[in-house]
Amino acid sequence: ATNIVGKVKWYNSTKNFGFIEQDNGGKDVFVHKSAVDAAGLHSLEEGQDVIFDLEEKQGKAYAVNLRIK
């Protein structure tokens, strides 16, 4: 899925991951530091509006192509 809109539920910059809540009511999506770095960001803030693509690997969904809304 592409261009999914959501809000950062939480992001832990020490542990380098967090979760994004989808605006469409879907399951929360894992986001890793690598996606944050690829977006040219240092971190994510709770409540921040983002747009992302959804990829699945080994049955787990995660956010890629992250951008600030």
Score class of each variant (00 low, 15 high):
Asn24Ile: 08
Lys69Gly: 06
Glu46Cys: 05
Gly40Met: 07
Lys9His: 05
Gln22Gly: 08
Leu44Ser: 01
Lys69Glu: 09
Leu66Gly: 00
Val5Tyr: 14
Leu66His: 00
Glu56Lys: 12
Leu54Thr: 10
Asp28Val: 05
His42Cys: 05
Leu44Arg: 01
Ile68Lys: 12
Gly6Leu: 01
Ser34Ile: 09
Asn65Cys: 04
Ala35Tyr: 06
Val8Gly: 01
Asn12Val: 08
Val8Thr: 03
His42Gly: 08
Phe52Pro: 00
Val50His: 01
Ala1Leu: 12
Thr14Asn: 10
Asn16Tyr: 12
Lys9Gln: 04
Asn24Phe: 14
Leu66Asn: 00
Lys7Ser: 06
Gly47Trp: 05
Glu56Asn: 12
Gln48Phe: 07
Leu41Asn: 05
Tyr11Glu: 01
Ile4Val: 11
Val5Phe: 13
His32Thr: 04
Gly25Cys: 05
Ala1Phe: 09
Tyr62Leu: 07
Lys33Leu: 05
Trp10Leu: 05
Phe30Tyr: 07
Glu21Ser: 15
Asp28Gln: 07
Glu21Val: 15
Phe19Gln: 02
Ser13Asn: 12
Ser13His: 12
Lys9Gly: 03
Asn24Met: 09
Val8Asp: 00
Val8Tyr: 01
Gly47Cys: 04
Lys9Trp: 02
Glu56Leu: 13
Val8His: 00
Tyr62Lys: 12
Gly26Ala: 13
Gly47Ala: 07
Ser43Leu: 13
Asp28Phe: 06
Asn3Pro: 04
Thr2Tyr: 15
Gly25Ser: 12
Asp49Phe: 15
Ile68Trp: 14
Val8Leu: 04
Lys33Gly: 14
Leu41Pro: 03
Asp53Ala: 04
Ser43Ala: 13
Phe52Asn: 00
Glu45Lys: 14
Ala38Leu: 10
Ala38Met: 08
Lys9Thr: 03
Thr2Gln: 11
Asp49Arg: 15
Phe52Trp: 02
Ala61Phe: 13
Thr2Glu: 11
Asp49Met: 15
Lys15Ser: 08
Leu41Ile: 09
Leu44Asn: 01
Glu45Asn: 11
His32Pro: 04
Val50Asn: 00
Gly6Ser: 02
Val29Pro: 01
Leu41Ala: 10
Ser43Tyr: 15
